[in-house]
Every structure is written in C-alpha cells, then in structure tokens.
C-alpha cells in the first residue's frame, strides 16, 4: 500500500491538458497532407502511390480533376514522398474531424500540357478542407455543454464493426492518465442501452452488419454516431468487397467523421467534443 502511494505521489500529474494546451506531437508525426495546388506540377505520381485512392486523378482531354478525400487517407506520406517537384507536404495537423462526409473532400481542376503535367490551376473547391472548430475552441466550453446537454456526463459505447484493432488501441488510450477523457465527464459504457454516443470503427464487415444495426437500435434517443478512422469513414484500404461493406454510414447514419489510421487520441477527443456539440443542439 505504501509503495503504491509513494509511486503515485512521485509520479505527479501525468495528464496532457490538451485541448487547453497544444497536443504533444513529435516532429515526425504525419498528420494531414497539405496540397499547394498552384505549385503542384503533376498529381499523377501521388495518385499512383496513394495506397487507398485518397488522391484520384481524372483527365479529359487537356483538363484534369484531382479529387482528394481525407476520409480515405491513411497518412502514410507517400504522396509527399513521390511529389519531388513539391506541391504536397505532410503537416502535423490532426484536428480533422468533420460533421459531414463532404467536408473531407477537396477538388482541384487543372489545365494540362500535352505530357500530362499541370499547365495551370483552373479552380479549387476546398470548402471542407479546414475544420471550422478546433478543439481548443471547444475545450473551453465543452464541460458546460456536456453538463447542459447530458446532465453532467456523456456515455459512449464503442463498436468494432470489423477494424484491425488499431483504432481500438487509441480509443483505449483515451482512458489512460495521459489523455484521461473522464475529466470531461465522458466515459465508456458496457451496453448500448446506456449510451449517448456510438463510436464505430470499420470497415463494417458483412459479418458485423447485423450486430451494428442491432446495437444502433438498442441505443436510446437522442444519440450520435461517430465514425472512426479511414476504414470507418470510407472502408479505407479494405474498401468494399464480398466481405466488407466498408463505410459505417452505409449501414447507420453518421454525425461526425474522425480521419486517421488510426486517429491519435487527441484527434479522437477533438471529434468526440465536436459530436457533443451536435448532440447538445439536438
């Protein structure tokens, strides 16, 4: 007993105060790939290298549409690595959660040279590229909001609808003393019947579809659904196949999408806080 106390006291406070302060993200962390569209000379190598098709190129004659989908991105850095002439770089941004699937997509139109490189940028549509709400903004108010909306607490039921378990590792980490999600009055519960929120990872497999539907139906109203990770948002690298349905929103309605492969705990927290706002308004 004495040893436990001694260890506890000598350790002090381990919690990382994010979102009140910035997250502790290392130099090397690969967050959102950022695209400098005017400077990007050729999207093809990046599209070719991208393992999930998050960068897609469609040419017609001497024009090209480049479609980028952060909902498919696994943050591998290949696009930046193969874009020797610049145009793509990896940033350390991770607060990417959005309230709509569209908010994760951006497109750019180019006029092309005969060799297929970009002559000039015609237009871009980046409406959803930047999340309007950072966790820092949410953090200040979130406690009050959770309290008002949910009577002091938010109960989450996690559903693994087919994931590789990577997302679950980071979701579990939300409960450790460093990320300590309980400080917001948010906790994970054992049954969907006690839950305000379903936190769902994917891809939804054929064999989990029914279980996911039943879990959704067992969750009382009002409820929010958060799709976690590239696979939960879009099917990710697994896509859809004989065994995989893919995106969670093909099975149940989704309110918030959290990109990542897997999303780091702070990214999960950001997305969950975003969803709390949604629930507070419901």
């Amino acid at each position: 007993m004495f040893k436990i106390l001694q260890k506890t006291l000598s350790t002090g406070i381990a919690t990382n105060p994010y979102p009140q302060t910035a997250a502790l993200v290392s130099e090397q962390f690969r967050g959102r790939p950022a695209f400098d569209f005017p400077a990007w000379q050729d999207a093809r190598p990046a599209a070719e290298a991208c393992p999930t098709g998050a960068i897609a190129v469609r040419d017609s004659g001497l024009t090209r549409e480049v479609a980028i989908d952060y909902g498919l991105c696994v943050f591998c850095g290949e696009c930046a690595r193969v874009s020797y002439a610049g145009g793509v770089r990896m940033t350390r941004e991770f607060e990417l959660a959005t309230r709509s699937r569209e908010g994760l997509r951006i497109t750019a139109q180019y006029e092309l040279y005969a060799d297929g490189t970009h002559k000039q940028l015609i237009s871009t549509d980046e409406a959803g590229a930047v999340t309007a709400v950072t966790a820092e903004m949410l953090g200040r108010e979130v406690e009050r909001t959770v309290r008002q909306a949910l009577g002091r607490s938010l109960a989450i039921r996690e559903v693994d609808a087919g994931s590789c378990n990577g997302c679950e590792l980071e979701i579990v980490a939300l409960n450790n003393p460093v990320h300590d999600i309980e400080r917001f009055g948010i906790h994970f519960v054992a049954s969907p019947r006690h839950a305000d929120m379903l936190l769902v990872t994917g891809p939804v497999t054929r064999n989990m579809e029914m279980a996911l539907r039943k879990t959704y139906d067992a969750t009382p109203h009002p409820k929010v659904v958060v799709a976690v990770g590239a696979c939960g948002i879009s099917g990710g690298i697994f896509g859809s196949s004989y065994a995989s349905i893919g995106a969670v929103d093909r099975v149940i309605p989704v309110d918030v999408y959290i990109p990542g492969c897997p999303p780091r705990p702070e990214a999960l927290l950001h997305g969950i806080l975003l969803a709390v706002y949604r629930l507070a308004r419901a």
Binding site: V25, Q28, M90, E170, A173, P177, P262
Partner: peptide, 19 residues
C-alpha cells in the same frame, strides 16, 4: 497506460506513427 504512452511517443518520433 502512462509508460505505454512514452513508448508509443518514441514510436512516433522514430516512424511518424504511434503504432
């Protein structure tokens, strides 16, 4: 949980990914 965070933080510093 705390020690594991140190370890995955090191992973990230070496590979860009906690996992």
């Amino acid at each position: 949980g705390r020690v594991r965070e140190m370890a995955v933080g090191l992973n990230e510093a070496l590979t860009g990914s906690r996992l």
